[in-house]
Design a protein around this nucleic acid. Sequence first.
DNA 1: AGCGATTTTGACAATCGTTCTCGATAAGCC
DNA 2: GGCTTATCGAGAACGATTGTCAAAATCGCT
Lengths: 126, 126
Amino acid sequence: MKRNTWQRTAVREALSARDGFVSAQELHTALRSAGSPIGLATVYRALSDLAGEGDADSLQSAEGENLYRACVSPGHHHHLICRVCGRTVEIEADAIEEWAARTAAAHGFRDPQHVVDVFAVCDRCS
Amino acid sequence: MKRNTWQRTAVREALSARDGFVSAQELHTALRSAGSPIGLATVYRALSDLAGEGDADSLQSAEGENLYRACVSPGHHHHLICRVCGRTVEIEADAIEEWAARTAAAHGFRDPQHVVDVFAVCDRCS
DNA sequence: AGCGATTTTGACAATCGTTCTCGATAAGCC
DNA sequence: GGCTTATCGAGAACGATTGTCAAAATCGCT
Ligand SMILES: [Mn+2]
Ligand SMILES: [Mn+2]
Ligand SMILES: [Zn+2]
Ligand SMILES: [Zn+2]
């Protein structure tokens, strides 16, 4: 049902070429600079699809922008993100998962979801 | 240096009258409905100030809106928020603080900040 | 390869939360 | 009361994102 277009491929590759989180606009600019005539709306759609399929992680920056990153590990995980360069480390922390579940249950809340991200400055940038 | 206006007082009180997170627009509408002629920009500014002074908590909804809540406990804490009605429980978890600091340090990252929120469905709403 | 049904694209407009502008207003202070 | 200056607020401006819709491209089928 989902068709293969060079646009989606281009977005996937451009995303993989980065090692941190990027916005749709940044990625669009990068693609255009590299000579691609891809449209902005298409980049937004492709990134949204990738995130929906689990091939990309997404998060909101402090400024409210949606940022994306090519997913390295397949399962659920969190991120340690450099505030300066965007470099990102994927983190698994079962302790956090348990804590979230326990905390919700302790207050009578059901079906907990959680947002856990750490923003700091990486060694290269400090 | 900072002046006391009835507008700031009105925002503070309107915020305290709620028990969940609200957006600036919602609060503005509520104030207007109650007869206040307060301006929208003023509500935005007041909420931003309150958050900056630590008298209000703020977070971003999944849709990217900035939400505010009158702060109950004074120190650093996190939230367990009902996805349906917005009811919120303030949570302190030293274990999380330590984990965040340890995780950042383990990867050579400095000056860590973290976003930790749990969204679930409260007992009244399930 | 050719055809046709259906998806996808992209330029542009529209949306929507938030911030900016700037003349008017009103705290705080003497 | 007056002065100084922070604050207000209506409306414009902004910026990220989404909607529109005609043109182009993909895929299944022959
Ligand atoms: Mn988790
Ligand atoms: Mn914390
Ligand atoms: Zn860095
Ligand atoms: Zn609830």
